[in-house]
């Protein structure tokens, strides 16, 4: 069985730290790869750009995707993932601090698997992320295409 890994797309270092810490607190030992903007996320998932030389990676079991990203926004990343056969069915969870109803709608239109608002309170944040992690790693069955 290959190891189930998580891709975290997050530009805010503090949120990145909190997210990883929450996943580790839930005793998740799974590999967590982090990229810091939308373009890097696409490069990682399509083995292009700075990831071009790495051997074709197995896709993560879930992408935790922030919306407000430099270079290419989370929603644009999502659109491109859905447009590509390899990543069409890849589970993507959008994590956002914004409460824009339009973002949510657009994300669902693009076929997001889950849309989660980042709680401000740190205990809540931990629980939310832990739940997410436990759910996507231990509970959810991914599509078998990749």
């Amino acid at each position: 069985m290959s190891e189930a890994k998580i891709l975290l797309v997050e530009d805010n270092p503090q949120d990145e730290l909190l997210t990883i810490r929450a996943l580790r607190k839930a005793r998740l030992a799974n590999r967590i790869d982090v990229v810091r903007d939308g373009q890097q996320a696409l490069d990682y998932l399509f083995n292009q750009g700075e990831f071009a030389n790495s051997t074709l990676q197995e896709l993560p079991v879930v992408v935790l995707l922030d919306i407000g990203l430099p270079r290419l926004s989370g929603l644009e990343v999502l659109e491109q993932l859905r447009a590509n056969e390899r990543t069409q069915l890849l589970p993507v969870v959008v994590l956002t601090s914004s409460d824009e109803a339009s973002d949510r709608l657009r994300a669902y239109r693009c076929g997001v698997n889950s849309f989660v608002r980042k709680p401000v309170n740190s205990a809540e944040f931990t629980e939310t992320i832990a739940r997410l992690g436990l759910y996507w790693i231990a509970t959810n069955e991914p599509p078998d295409v990749h």
Binding site: A22, K25, E127, R131, G133, T139
Partner: peptide, 18 residues
């Protein structure tokens, strides 16, 4: 620890789901 509490909640939620 509020985060430990949060984790226990999350584990229980996962257990229920499974």
């Amino acid at each position: 620890s509020s985060s430990s509490e949060a984790i226990v909640r999350a584990i229980l939620a996962m257990g229920h789901a499974l």
